[in-house]
Design a protein around this nucleic acid. Structure first.
Lengths: 149, 149
DNA sequence: TAAGATTCAGATAGAAATGTCTGATATATG
DNA sequence: CATATATCAGACATTTCTATCTGAATCTTA
């Protein structure tokens, strides 16, 4: 199966989007997130721990504890989350899998793929949690998709 | 780890490219391909069998046997190979992993991602084995990358 | 027609990703 | 301070992907 992001990365993106729609001060616990987004709870826990270590989220134990964004939503791009979970290997690796592929020794689709990959990177780097959060707030459909409403 | 194609799909693409650089009538055996491209031989065998079932390659057993393209190289797009191995799930699935994502109920990056994904599809559908094969013939670097020379 | 070379089919093994479990640690609240 | 609730850490289990093994079927050639 071909894909872009690992399942764990998808979970991370969904969860941060969910949290971004919450009030800023509140901690959201993984039980709530996993129920709303249908993500296995312990695995989600592991996943969000990675985001805490990457300083994207902060956490608190105990009652009223949970996770929340560790910085201003406008400072968190989708790319930061992808990087924290999947890394940036896809930005440099050859799409055909040739181990030694570079601009000096390109594969047959090197330059074309480079353009497309850069566009993907731009999209991920440009779109921040802040602007997506605004979209979610403004759209009933999106709130439904995130298990809100 | 994020990626685009499965490893098996990368192997398939590399192997077909390798064969395309051979004379059309000749059968190329998996031993030769696996050595030149550093692909595990039995796994490559399984992989090429999938391409035979998809009518992209034909095969012959016995001495002088092996695999060769089953049709005109200009009729084989990269996309056909990807489709035969990995399928086209990546063309329709949500990049954020939301199970129900469509134009009627889009995720926050649905339309942007749609544009990028379509460009990837166009590239894979437009580039055929014929034109890549010509590039390989014309480029010493590419021949080296494919273990030729 | 016999021998060797090769793909083919199915079972097995190993590795990586995903998912689960248990107990430890920290925190809010009564 | 005790209790309940939550994250955290590490081990374990399951699933999927990748890789290997064995023998059967088929073809070429001497």
């Amino acid at each position: 199966m071909s894909l872009i992001f690992s399942r764990q990365c998808e979970y991370a993106l969904q969860a941060v989007l969910y949290m971004s729609a919450q009030s800023e001060k509140r901690f959201t616990n993984i039980n709530e997130i996993s129920e709303r987004l249908d993500i296995p709870m312990p695995f989600l826990g592991k996943t969000l721990q990675l985001l805490v270590r990457s300083k994207i989220l902060s956490s608190q134990k105990g009652p009223k504890g949970g996770f929340k964004l560790a910085k201003n939503p406008s400072e968190i791009a989708l790319f930061h989350i992808v990087d924290a979970i999947d890394g940036t290997y896809f930005m440099t690796s050859c799409v055909l899998g040739f181990p030694e592929c570079s601009s000096k020794s390109p594969c047959p689709v090197h330059s074309e793929w480079g353009v497309l990959r850069d566009r993907v990177h731009q999209m991920l780097a440009n779109r921040t949690i802040a602007d997506i959060s605004k979209e979610i707030t403004d759209s009933k459909q999106l709130r439904a998709k995130l298990g809100l409403l």
